[in-house]
Simulated scan of single mutants.
Amino acid sequence: MNTGTKTVLVTGADGFIGSHLVEALIRHNYNVKAFVYYNSFSSWGWLDHIPEHLKKELEVFAGDIRDPYGVKEAMKGCDIVLHLAALIAIPYSYHSPETYIDTNIKGTLNIVQAARELEVEKVIHTSTSEVYGTALTVPISEEHPLQGQSPYSASKIGADQIAMSFYRSFGTPVSIVRPFNTYGPRQSARAIIPTVITQIANGVRELKLGSLHPTRDFSYIDDTVEGFIHAMLEEKSVGEVVNLGTGYEISIKETVELIARIMDKQVAITTDTQRLRPEKSEVERLCSDNRKARNLLGWSPNYGDRDGLIRGLTRTIEWFTASENLSLYKHERYNI
């Protein structure tokens, strides 16, 4: 893929998905500007861990997505914006919901307002399968009702609507991609797959977990990244919302058992009450209808179905169990 001299800004570039996306874009010959969250440690998050030869190709802008002036400054000279910056931890949204409104909704407003003023070619806004809430119909298409079952999901619904309102009101070229449960190397330990892997890898055989019965549609990071790139390149994606998921549904309990089997360990599970969501807030079932992504974007998952999940989990386990990576995680603590 040769893309010439397009300059792409990635917000949330210091995070899990963002850092992988930055790597892929550099390899596809884009000029990449990484918007990272300013901190006094000069940390670029996960970008500190990408290969040095890729890091040298990167322009980094440290700022705060909540600051409209900094956002606009970062976007100057950029052709395309991939907007991933967000607060995403559901438990923390119970604790501090106002920060989710400021970061997710107002941050998105800052992006689309600057895109309008600077006449950016395209904005890809990142949504989440959590906006659907517990599935009313399966598989979940883009037409499924939106249900805010946590302050996090409500803030993302608001962000999605702000983004799409600028397309409808001002013709701002916005596309929305809606990933389902992405997993892989560098994911936060607040998520179920890293939680299980890091506990087992550190010798824990009685795992502390939350609800086991909900089902999820787990998408490997490489597939999610390719979905972003397909959406970015496809002109017909403007004004559209597109799911990125496998369509393969599995329970949390089955996922834990699968991880333990791949790691060749016998484990027991205990319920840690602090990891349980409030009853009406728990999303019981998620399973993607990805036909729109296939038809509109020409995208399909390489890690779909059970075999794909096993391959993706195996690669994820290999990364997490490397000592230099495992040491970065506090397996004994519950991360909200």
Rank of each mutant, 00 (worst) to 15 (best):
V174W: 03
T126L: 11
L146E: 13
A163H: 02
S188W: 00
T134P: 10
I124H: 08
S188L: 01
A189S: 14
I157K: 07
G133Q: 12
G184F: 11
I162W: 05
T128Q: 01
P185Y: 04
P139T: 01
T126S: 13
V123G: 04
I176W: 00
P151F: 04
L136H: 10
A163P: 04
V131R: 08
V123S: 03
Y132Q: 09
F180Y: 15
F166C: 04
K156Y: 09
I176D: 00
A191M: 15
A159M: 05
T128H: 01
T137V: 13
E143M: 12
P139M: 02
R178Q: 12
M164L: 15
S129R: 09
V177M: 06
L146I: 12
D160H: 07
E142Q: 04
I157D: 04
S175D: 00
A191N: 15
S155T: 11
S175E: 03
A154C: 12
S188E: 03
Y183W: 10
D160G: 02
S129D: 15
L146A: 11
P179G: 07
V177W: 01
R190D: 15
L146N: 11
S127E: 08
K156F: 12
R178A: 06
D160Y: 01
G158M: 02
P179E: 01
S153F: 04
T134M: 07
Q149C: 09
Q187N: 13
I124W: 07
S155D: 03
Y132R: 07
T134H: 04
G148K: 03
S188T: 13
Q149L: 14
K156E: 11
G133R: 11
M164E: 00
F170E: 07
S153G: 09
V138I: 14
K156S: 09
R168C: 02
Q147M: 13
T172E: 04
A159N: 06
I176L: 05
P151G: 06
Y167W: 15
R186A: 07
I162N: 06
E143L: 14
T126W: 08
G184N: 06
S127G: 14
P151I: 05
G158D: 01
K122H: 11
S165F: 02
N181R: 10
Q161I: 15
G133H: 12
G148M: 06
F166A: 05
V177N: 08
F180W: 11
R186Q: 13
V138S: 12
A154D: 11
S169T: 12
S169I: 05
I124R: 10
L146M: 13
